[in-house]
Amino acid sequence: MTALDRVRTPRRRSVPKRLVAGAVLTILLVVLALVSLVWTPQPTSGIRILLKLQPPLSSGLLGTDQLGRDVFSLLMAGAANSFAIAAAAVALGGTLGTVTGLLAAIRGGWTETLTMRGCDVLFAFPPILSAMLLGVVLGPGRPTAVVAIAAFMVPVFARVARASGARILALDYILAARCAGKGAARIAAEHVLPNIAGDLLVQATLQLGLAILAEAGLSFLGLGPTPPAPSWGRMLADARTYVQLAPWLAIAPGAAVALAVLGLNLLGDGLRDRFDPRLRGRT
């Protein structure tokens, strides 16, 4: 930011707003998801054929689906499912990616070239296709969704970890640590990781949003968790032929996905502003 700009730009109030809005939205959905584990307004399994396709407010807050299940209850349980898969995928992809990226940064040379080229190959392969192939090998279900989503996150985290890691590794005190005889693993754990944790956290938050989108897409194609576990993507897929008859069935789950992703993105942007003031207000 330059002095010139600072004069012209009004004081920015929106930064904390974004963070707060994102945090509130995310916390709200996480709380709903957690509550669904012990209580939902109506049971999410069990069918009530006589109550099928009731419009919103006439039966439950958001009406019922083609089997007479309460849509709001399904959305709550779907939130738990979405967040669980997204979190697992980010944890898996993030860990693998970070380790790979750090390894590349510390070792350099051939290791670096090879891992980064490997990331390029992974990146070039359209993620949805690898997910479809995985779905065939493992069969649809939670593990498939988690692995498929994690797979396309590995290169993302690897790149972030390598870039940020390389920045830290160039600093003098790392040289000092090396001279003191510390091994690569210790240097990575004691000096590099804590310093790039912020970057990784920001990336993880943003990737969580992407993971929720990806989970919805996979479930939409029938590669997500299996019934009776409710899933936003599968609800959308089921709703397709009911669009005219019962539009709420198509609108509600999509809105849920959108809110969850919006919350996480706002949160991620807000966190980035905090951790990296250089980028403040840029994105």
């Binding site: 399994s45 069990g46 069918i47 083609q66 089997l67 779905g135 065939v136 069969g139 649809p140 279900g141 029938g222 299996t226 019934p227 009776p228």
Partner: peptide
């Protein structure tokens, strides 16, 4: 859809039915 209904109906008599999606025809 039929499987989901069967799952619910069988639950009424104490049969816990686990749905395993199995790609047709190959798998």
């Amino acid at each position: 859809r039929s499987a989901e209904v069967l799952q619910a109906l069988l639950a009424e008599v104490g049969v816990r039915l686990t749905i395993v999606p199995t790609e047709f025809p190959a798998k």
